[in-house]
């Protein structure tokens, strides 16, 4: 049984090594990788700027709404504090599943 497994393992190694010989593409020169890295870094940077812009825009809209409410409808503003407080407490104290944790 053990011998069979070793034989299969050996055969597998041999066959997969042959695949490498059939398909052996030339390695691109360093300039190709430098361009790839530079382009991807640029894309990541642009995406970060865009996301920060949308975040700031959303925050500004929310703050404007809250400010208008505070000036024009102070009662509603005070009522709004209740769900915000509940949400904050839940967010802080509700046990969250860690990344990679299996249920």
């Amino acid at each position: 049984m053990k011998e069979n497994e070793e034989k299969l393992k050996h055969q597998l190694t041999e066959e997969l090594s042959r695949l490498e010989k059939w398909e052996n593409p030339p390695i691109p020169d360093l300039a190709f990788f430098e361009q790839l890295v530079a382009e991807e870094k640029k894309r990541i940077h642009q995406q970060l700027i865009r996301e920060l812009f949308y975040f700031a825009l959303t925050a500004a809209v929310i703050l404007c709404c809250v400010a208008v409410m505070l000036i024009r409808l102070p009662v509603f503003f005070l009522l709004l504090q209740v769900p915000i407080l509940v949400a904050a407490v839940l967010f802080l104290f509700y046990p969250r599943k860690k990344e990679g944790e299996v249920e």
Binding site: D29, F33, E34, L36, V37, A38, K41
Partner: peptide, 13 residues
């Protein structure tokens, strides 16, 4: 970026 490019080239194969 040069170091990362070199790493990628070395591990491409």
């Amino acid at each position: 970026q040069n170091a990362l490019s070199l790493l990628l080239q070395q591990n491409y194969s």
